[in-house]
Design a protein around this nucleic acid. Structure first.
Lengths: 177, 177
DNA sequence: CAACCGCTATATCGAACCGATATAACGAAC
DNA sequence: GTTCGTTATATCGGTTCGATATAGCGGTTG
């Protein structure tokens, strides 16, 4: 999750921890803390996925290695990985440009079906508990359903524009290695 | 956060851990795990805010104590507490019935101003990075702004209905201590 | 009826993450 | 020239997550 976000940002060029965290916050994913960033950088280094330059002291530069790029691609495109977690999905979407169109559509569709299920469940739970629950909780659940529906509509737009870009599966990437 | 949610649910009657977690999931706050629930119950017990009946083995019943109710009220109404965290705000809203109307409006207004700020920031960041950022990230940010605006509109509804219930500030609670 | 399956229920473990805090060097203002 | 805000790295305790273990209970099916 954090690992993916960091590796993805470092793919665009080397950065130091503070800057990395700032970019993470700016993208509006979640309000990540230094207590997560620095341990994450250390463990990415231990795993050999990033390299550090500019020894102990101030301003260390982190740069992704070849193995790091490979690992990033793996965790990014892993179909089994969570599409249920909103944050995880959004991070993935921010790195969609590194996926092939067909893989992109797969993620969008899976996310859509998760949201559909969630809407159905929420609707059912609303009908069941309509009288037992106070108006605030009810309003909260109704609003939740509306937002989820807006999410689905947005996903539909993304899927549509994805399909219109590459009508026939993946003939967008003819010269793959 | 979890503590507040648990105490709030236990206010409605004694429950065991599994049921508690199920209610938490049903309310759609977040997909809470047992690895959070049971440690939370133990620490609430250690603090004297809940009581356990039905010794070691299966099916323990938890019940909130008098001090627990008092503590719940304190953390629920604490104005300094986070209105920035979406989950925390939603949990609080689910227990709005335990707040006085004026306190409720305060929370709604603070939440609204947080969202307004966030919208302004996101808009600024959209303008600044419109060309540097790919279309997925851009769509993500735009969608985020739309959702936040829908949230603000929803908060406005809640505030309006709150004020129409108690038109003149806080003359609903004339016999305050 | 016993063997099996799925659900209820409690519990723990390691890893990840958060929020607060410490530290320090830098640049700008006053 | 000292005070202040920003950049920057780092750690600490506590909370939460996800996975997993364990076991009793109720139903069903061969």
């Amino acid at each position: 999750m954090l690992d993916m976000a960091i590796l993805g940002l470092l793919r665009e060029g080397p950065m130091h921890g503070y800057e990395l965290r700032q970019r993470l916050v700016d993208l509006g994913f979640w309000r990540i803390s230094f207590g997560s960033v620095y341990p994450a950088l250390r463990r990415l280094d231990r795993s050999g996925w990033i390299e550090v330059s500019g020894g102990s002291g101030r301003r260390k530069e982190y740069r992704v290695t070849a193995e790091g790029k490979e690992h990033f691609q793996q965790i990014l495109e892993d179909e089994a990985s969570e599409v249920e977690n909103t944050t995880a999905f959004r991070v993935r979407l921010a790195f969609f440009r590194y996926m092939e169109p067909s893989v992109r559509i797969g993620f969008l569709e899976r996310r859509k079906s998760v949201l559909r299920e969630r809407i159905a469940t929420a609707r059912g739970s609303l009908r069941k508990t309509a009288d037992r629950v106070d108006r605030y909780t009810q309003s909260l659940m109704e609003h939740g359903v509306r937002v989820a529906e807006a999410d689905v509509a947005w996903l539909d737009e993304l899927i549509a524009s994805e399909r219109s870009d590459a009508p026939r599966g993946n003939d967008e990437t003819p010269d793959e290695k």
